[in-house]
Nucleic acid binder design. Structure first.
Lengths: 335, 335
DNA sequence: CTGTTAGCGCTTTCAC
DNA sequence: GTGAAAGCGCTAACAG
């Protein structure tokens, strides 16, 4: 930095002010300093400036896993937005939610980040308390917490209207496939099931909820179970597209036509959903990330604000949902 | 820190040494200091210590995109390994490779990270030069560069033996679907095509290479093109599972049985490959990440070393590949 | 084995 | 509008 000062013929303080965009520097001087810095390809050390300002220029993103489609997309949204604010993104994979509390305590967040984004973590009160210890603002994504900055969708409402779509098509036997991993249900999962139950109750139809493993494997197992019933349903609403894909796969292998024999509905609008022609509830994952990043930036400026942002979902009706026995009708044609 | 010193009844230097695990501290004193630190829930500021040691405790991971399956898995491998070394992972999404050079120059890597991992970036010489400007060790993943630390698989050899699998099954008309995005071929893509060509040449069979878009969409388009030929091939080798999935989808929609009418082979062992019963070449993505992280850690200690680590691939033969016209034979049964 | 001292590279009063 | 000086929280010689 003193090299730059020498080259521009000014003092250290002036260089600092000029490069930081601080007021009180003659335009002509500022430009001279910037030129000198560029020529020496000098950039201020965030580390050093942070030491005195207290800011780190970094935001931590906590994710349970990194592999699923959802997280990649959300991270992309977050990263892009943070970059605009000239903030770096630190990613921590919390892993299977056992011992999170301890893990969170170990994490070097203390004086290492300006804010934390908890991505789809479903933390309980004690875990949140551990995060609070860090002393920086926390933004929750996909988990709605009172008195906390968070961004989310209305899972219940989305599931409700998606279920109605199936009911309106004429289905009267609709199964819901819910999944839980070793650590229990996710918050969004519970909400979606509720939405489904509400719509079914409104229509006076008996709900059928299956609980199984998560992911395609869980969907495949659930489909097997449903198909071996005395009276299989005519539609399956899967908690997520992942699960729906497992269902689709089993149906395909069994030679059961979708949607003629069985309608399948997913949730998420996964990457592959369009290719599979899967009807689904789309949630704006990338945008959720971007909003979360924005909230994090704002929270740094004003830690007192606890904005709640709800994002809209869209039911995407594709080829995997239709009225029950649409095919038989078409083929039989004698009603 | 001085609070800790007071509480433990020692000087600042002793606290620093004790907490850092530096030698020359009485065991009894060390424990006392650690206890004091714990009671005050004090952790040393990386920022401040970095200011004097020069180390940042951070590694930057540069990825072109975040969404594809590959990057999530690789990032998980990297992150886990870095955490073991008590290093933080900074993730930068470089985006569409246009203007990377400039983007890399803008990135706040300068005195902000101890090492850089370039994940599947396919940088050219000038872009690498920009990275070198940063002055920290760089580890390349999925790109093999002389005189550079890198971790990779032998794409050509893997593609060669996968092609031989198809040849050995009796196929004599095997198409390869290659994909390129707007910025051109990836390095691994070129290598895989080469492996395919070599195996075909060895067998004296004419190669058929299709170049199209990337991803499932590219696969779908390529499949359409192949199926509309006067003499469609009996097997399709897709550059990646992504592409293969597009191919599978088109075949399924067209009512063409896999593998009876058409064998399909992928590359990567994508998440969904098992569910789709897709034969493929598995590459150890998570392990590549872990190794890259290890190399990065080692490179920090010894920047002169430029280890090259080659990881093994495995051909996973599943249900999507079989001899040509296996079904006709079975059905016709009159040979 | 432990304490003292001088910075690491920057920002920030406070004078001028 | 600009400069001098005093730290931010820590480590690294150097004494003791």
């Amino acid at each position: 930095m003193s090299d730059v000062a020498d080259r521009a013929g000014v003092s250290l303080s002036t260089v600092s002010r000029a490069l930081r965009g601080a007021p009180g520097v003659a335009p002509e001087v500022r430009e001279r300093v910037q030129r000198a810095a560029a020529e020496l390809s000098y950039v201020v050390s965030r580390n050093a400036s942070g030491l005195v300002t207290g800011a780190t220029g970094r935001v931590a993103v906590l994710v349970p896993f990194l592999q699923p489609w959802f997280f990649g997309v959300a991270l992309a949204g977050i990263g892009t937005r943070l970059r605009q604010a000239d903030l770096d993104m630190l990613v921590y994979q919390v892993g299977d939610m056992r011992g999170v509390e301890e893990y969170l305590g170990e994490l070097p967040l203390r004086r290492n980040v300006d804010a934390v984004i908890a991505l789809s973590l479903d933390l309980d009160e004690r875990e949140i308390a551990v995060l609070d210890e860090v002393g920086v603002p926390v933004v929750f994504v996909s988990q709605r917490i009172p008195e906390r900055a968070s961004v989310f969708i209305d899972n219940a409402a989305a599931a409700r209207s998606a279920t109605r779509h199936l009911l309106n098509l004429g289905h009267t036997s609709i199964a819901f496939v819910q999944s839980a991993d070793s650590t229990g249900f996710e918050w969004s999962s519970a909400e979606r099931v509720n939405g489904y139950r509400e719509a079914m109750a409104e229509a006076g139809v008996r709900p059928q909820v299956l609980v199984g493993e998560s992911g395609p494997r869980g969907g495949a197992l659930a489909a097997g179970e449903l198909l071996s019933r005395a009276e299989p349903p005519t539609a399956i609403f899967a908690e997520s597209d992942d699960v729906a894909m497992g269902v689709l796969r089993v149906l395909q292998r069994s030679g059961l036509a979708v949607p003629e024999v069985m309608s399948v509905l997913g949730f998420d609008n996964h990457d592959m959903a369009e290719l599979l022609d899967l009807s689904t509830v789309a949630q704006p994952v990338s945008e959720m990330g971007a909003v979360a990043a924005r909230l994090a930036v704002e929270a740094v400026a004003d830690p007192a604000a606890v904005p709640h942002v709800e994002l809209a979902t869209n039911l995407l009706v594709r080829g995997s949902t239709a009225g029950p026995r649409a095919a038989s009708r078409l083929v039989g044609g004698n009603e």
